[in-house]
């Protein structure tokens, strides 16, 4: 197992280099001058353009791009993510403050999606083509089809304006007030989690139907094991591998979904940070954020690989 993990770690290094080049260069391809975006049209085009040229020099935009990359990569390696041009704060500090709400949202959404998908998927698999299966499938398709912004607003209307049992939007850190944190996060987590729950539910269903037809399951039943022990103890573990694959792949989607959801629910997270930074052409923040998120996705994929290896020893031998 350690060798397996080490192999996977080494394989991520060239990927990281590639990602760093892409993170740096892709933002430079965005049309529009960042100095113009930050200063605003009127100031940037003021008669003397002094503020405009001062800002371009400060951003290092007057240097050749390869030099800009090398300087940036060197700083990244030393752990210096630089300063935000827009609000003159250290980027590491900004990302540090934003990553927790996003991570919490993604984690809660993942937990919620599993809580929905596992029972629904098992019921559907145990009674395929039944009314329960049809109901769960319909709910799953609705979960995928309803856009986040619509579901989010609908939830606020129902639970905050109508029933008044939840606050409409905002964020409080869990260590400041855990109860309020959960009250504020339950609707966003549900908004992000429903789409994932739908995908997972369908995956659990199809994987379990397949596994339940395997001979070892029949053997287990013939030995007189109860249905709970057969499904939970024997079938579900093998059915979990494709489910974990989907979970690993959905980390990026969870973060992508967080962009819209964070805006609707006024959560100060990474999604909002990226969108705002792109709008204002705050290149250092965009570059650092893309890098950090890419590393997060790589880490999620690595974790998925390791869990594979644990669940199926054959994978470790590859």
């Amino acid at each position: 197992m350690p060798r397996f993990i080490a192999r996977r770690l080494v394989a991520t290094v060239p990927l990281l280099v590639l990602i760093s080049i892409l993170a740096f260069s892709l933002v430079l391809l965005l049309p529009g001058d960042p100095a113009l975006a930050i200063l605003g049209d009127e100031v940037a085009n003021a008669n003397d353009k002094q503020a405009y040229y001062a800002l371009r020099a400060e951003m290092g935009l007057d240097e050749p791009i390869p030099i800009q990359y090398l300087r940036w990569a060197g700083k990244m390696l030393s752990g210096d993510l630089g300063m935000s041009i827009r609000n003159q704060t250290p980027i590491a500090e900004t990302i540090g403050a934003k990553i927790l709400p996003t991570a919490e949202l993604a984690l809660l959404a993942a937990i919620l999606s599993l809580l929905i998908a596992l029972p629904a998927g098992i019921i559907s698999a145990l009674r395929p083509n039944s009314l329960a299966d049809a109901g769960a499938t319909l709910a799953a398709l609705s979960g995928v089809a309803v856009p986040h912004f619509f579901l989010g607003v609908l939830l606020i209307y129902a639970f905050a304006v109508g029933l008044r049992i939840l606050p409409p939007s905002g964020y409080v850190a869990p260590w400041e007030d855990l109860g309020q944190n959960l009250r504020l996060m339950i609707m966003p987590a549900f908004t992000v989690g429903t789409g994932l729950a739908a995908i997972l539910m369908r995956q659990v269903r199809s994987a379990l139907i397949e596994v339940l037809q395997q001979e070892y399951v029949i053997t287990a039943r013939s030995k007189g094991l109860g249905e709970r022990a057969v499904v939970i103890g024997h079938a579900l573990k093998n059915a979990a591998i494709p489910v974990i694959t989907i979970m690993g792949q959905q980390v990026g989607t969870l973060i992508g979904g967080a962009v819209v959801t964070e805006t609707i629910f006024a959560i100060p997270g990474m999604g909002r940070l990226i969108v705002d930074s792109i709008s204002y052409r705050d290149f250092p923040v965009v570059q650092a954020t893309v890098l950090v998120l890419s590393i997060s996705v790589l880490a999620a994929n690595l974790t998925t690989d390791i869990i594979y290896g644990y669940l199926d020893p054959r994978i470790r031998q590859d």
Binding site: L112, L115, F159, A160, R164, I165, L166, P167, S169, G170, Y171, V172, E176, D177, G179, Q180, L182, R183, L184, I186, A266
Partner: peptide
Amino acid sequence: LMGLTACLRRDVSQGATDA
């Protein structure tokens, strides 16, 4: 899960930034 919401219920008019 929904019950958890209800258990955590309190005066929501305090908003998100009471602290």
